[in-house]
């Protein structure tokens, strides 16, 4: 067999697998925080690799969420005067404004529809 094998992981199967660190669970299921090229070829043996022990820092007893740098946030959430940043559409064709405006109860004028 040639080529790479990409496995679609089910979060429910890995959630309570004590031989896999929680950070690895998230990396495998969502490909977050890791190098994607490394994540594509995941073999069965990876389950049994010995992990290097990392001492948790003080912040691991806190649930205060972390955010990206302010400059990154500003770039992501820049709005022009027409309340749309069409240039920044994701793969599904949704702009950040469209994603967030779904969560608000907005008047028709606010979301750019004509009053007439």
């Amino acid at each position: 067999l040639q080529g790479t094998v990409t496995r679609k992981w089910d979060i429910n199967k890995l959630l309570y697998a004590n031989n896999i660190e929680p950070e690895d669970v998230i990396d495998r299921v969502y490909n977050r925080g890791g190098d994607e090229s490394e994540e594509e070829d995941i073999e069965e043996e990876d389950f049994f690799k010995k992990k290097i022990y990392k001492e948790p820092s003080n912040e691991f007893d806190s649930y205060k969420p972390h955010f990206s740098d302010i400059e990154m946030l500003k770039n992501k959430w820049i709005f022009d005067n027409n309340n749309s940043n069409i240039d920044k559409e994701d793969s599904a064709g949704n702009s950040p404004f469209a994603l967030i405006s779904r969560r608000f109860i907005l008047s028709k004028k606010m979301i750019g529809e004509d009053d007439s």
């Binding site: 969420p65 955010f67 302010i70 946030l73 959430w77 994603l99 967030i100």
Partner: peptide, 17 residues
């Protein structure tokens, strides 16, 4: 204010905290 936009975009019924 920007963090609120970010948190709203990645929250369900409750936020991460």
């Amino acid at each position: 204010a920007y963090q609120l936009f970010e948190e709203l975009s990645i929250s369900g019924a409750v936020c991460r905290s």
